[in-house]
Deep mutational scan, measured.
Amino acid sequence: PEDEKKAKEALKRANGDEDKAKEILRKLGVDPDRAEELLRRLR
């Protein structure tokens, strides 16, 4: 869904750096736990 698209985009923008991607997602208003879960799934 929408969050998943955001997560993929964030990872791309962060050049695969998960911590940076998490930060980006947090700024986009995605719940930190949700962000973590999404990134884990994309790994």
Rank of each mutant, 00 (worst) to 15 (best):
K27E: 14
D3V: 07
A21M: 04
R43G: 06
R40I: 07
D3S: 05
K22W: 09
K27D: 12
L28R: 04
K20G: 06
V30P: 00
D3H: 05
D31A: 13
K5D: 12
V30K: 01
K27R: 13
A7Q: 02
R40E: 08
A10G: 01
E37F: 06
E4Q: 09
E37Y: 06
E9Q: 11
A21K: 01
L39K: 00
E2W: 12
P1N: 14
K27F: 10
L25G: 00
G29K: 03
K6S: 09
G29Y: 01
K5C: 06
D19H: 12
A10W: 02
R43V: 09
K12E: 11
L25N: 00
K8I: 15
G16E: 03
K12S: 10
E4D: 07
K27H: 12
A10P: 01
D31V: 04
R40D: 06
R43T: 07
G16W: 10
V30R: 01
R34Q: 09
L39S: 00
G16H: 04
R34V: 14
A21C: 04
E4R: 10
D33M: 13
D31K: 08
A35F: 08
E9P: 01
P1Y: 14
K20P: 01
E36L: 08
A7V: 12
K6H: 12
K20E: 10
R26N: 08
E4F: 15
K12G: 06
E37V: 08
A7N: 01
A10F: 02
E4N: 07
A35C: 06
R43L: 14
A35L: 07
K8D: 04
K27G: 13
L25S: 00
E4M: 15
K22Y: 13
E36C: 10
L39P: 00
E9V: 09
R26K: 13
P32A: 12
D3A: 07
K8A: 12
A21W: 03
A10K: 01
L38E: 01
E9R: 09
L25H: 00
L38P: 00
D3F: 09
R34T: 13
R34L: 13
D31T: 11
N15P: 02
E9D: 11
A14E: 02
L25E: 00
E9I: 12
A10Y: 02
V30N: 01
E4I: 15
K6D: 06
K20R: 11
G16P: 01
V30H: 03
K12A: 12
L11E: 01
N15H: 12
K27L: 15
K6I: 15
R41L: 12
L38N: 01
G29R: 03
R41W: 11
L11A: 02
R41H: 09
R13W: 14
K5M: 14
R40F: 05
G16D: 04
L38Y: 04
E36Q: 07
L28G: 05
L25W: 01
L39W: 02
V30Y: 15
L42Y: 06
D31R: 08
E37Q: 10
L38H: 02
R26A: 13
R13C: 09
G16F: 08
L25R: 00
E2G: 11
L28Q: 12
L28V: 05
I24M: 09
A35P: 00
D17W: 04
K6L: 15
E37P: 01
D17F: 04
D33Q: 13
A35Y: 05
L39F: 07
P32G: 11
R40N: 09
D19F: 12
R34F: 10
E9S: 08
E18Q: 09
D19P: 06
A14K: 01
E18V: 15
L28W: 15
E9Y: 13
L39M: 08
K20V: 14
E9A: 12
E2H: 09
V30S: 01
K5P: 05
D3T: 05
L28I: 06
A21E: 01
E2N: 11
D33K: 13
R26V: 15
A7I: 08
L42G: 02
K20W: 09
N15R: 13
R13Q: 15
L25T: 00
R40G: 06
V30L: 11
A35K: 00
A10L: 03
L42K: 02
E4A: 09
R34N: 06
L39V: 06
R41P: 02
E9F: 09
N15Q: 10
G16A: 03
G29A: 03
D31H: 12
E18P: 12
N15W: 09
L42A: 05
A35S: 05
E23D: 10
A21S: 02
G29E: 02
K27V: 11
K27P: 01
E36I: 07
G29I: 03
L25P: 00
D19V: 15
P1M: 14
L42S: 03
R13P: 01
R26Q: 13
D33I: 13
D31I: 04
D17N: 12
G29N: 04
R43K: 10
R13L: 15
L11H: 03
I24E: 07
K27S: 14
K6C: 09
R13G: 05
R43A: 07
E2V: 09
L39C: 03
N15G: 12
E37S: 06
L11D: 01
G29W: 00
D3I: 09
P32W: 09
D17Y: 04
D17G: 02
R40Q: 09
D3M: 12
G16N: 06
E4C: 08
R13K: 12
L25Q: 00
A7M: 05
E36Y: 06
R34G: 04
R34D: 08
D17P: 01
D31N: 10
E36V: 07
I24D: 04
E36F: 05
E37W: 06
G29P: 00
R13V: 11
A21G: 02
K8E: 08
E36M: 08
A7W: 04
A7R: 01
E18W: 15
K8Q: 11
K22F: 14
L25I: 02
E2Y: 09
K20N: 05
A7K: 01
I24Q: 03
P32D: 11
R40S: 08
E9K: 07
A21Y: 05
R41V: 05
N15K: 12
L25V: 01
G16K: 03
K6A: 13
D31M: 09
R26E: 12
L39H: 00
E18H: 15
E23A: 11
L28K: 04
R41K: 13
K6Q: 13
D33T: 12
K6P: 03
R26T: 14
L11N: 01
R13M: 15
G29V: 01
E36T: 08
R13T: 11
P1T: 14
K20F: 10
L39Y: 03
D19I: 13
A7T: 05
D19S: 13
K8R: 15
D17C: 07
K8G: 05
D19L: 14
E37M: 08
R41E: 06
A14D: 00
A10E: 02
G16S: 03
P32Y: 09
P32R: 10
P32E: 12
A14W: 03
G16T: 02
K20T: 09
D33W: 12
E2L: 10
K12H: 11
E4W: 15
K27Q: 15
A7D: 01
N15L: 10
K27C: 10
K22P: 00
L11G: 00
I24G: 02
R26F: 11
V30E: 02
D19Y: 12
K12F: 13
R41T: 06
L28D: 07
E18I: 15
P32L: 11
L38D: 00
D3K: 03
R26H: 11
D33S: 12
R43N: 06
P32S: 11
E2D: 14
E2S: 13
L42V: 07
R34H: 10
R34C: 07
I24P: 00
L42D: 01
R40M: 10
D17V: 05
E2A: 11
A7P: 01
A7F: 05
A10R: 01
E37R: 06
D19A: 15
D33V: 13
K12W: 13
G16C: 10
D17A: 04
P1S: 15
A10M: 02
K20D: 06
P1G: 14
R43M: 12
A21H: 00
V30W: 14
K6N: 10
V30M: 15
A7L: 07
L28Y: 07
E23F: 04
L25D: 00
E4G: 05
K5R: 14
K12C: 08
K27T: 13
P32H: 08
G16Q: 04
L38I: 10
I24K: 02
K12P: 00
P1E: 15
R43P: 02
E9M: 11
A14V: 06
K12L: 14
P32F: 07
R43E: 05
L25A: 01
A21L: 04
D19Q: 14
E4T: 10
L38M: 10
D17L: 04
D17I: 04
P32M: 11
A7G: 04
A14N: 02
K20H: 08
V30Q: 02
L38Q: 02
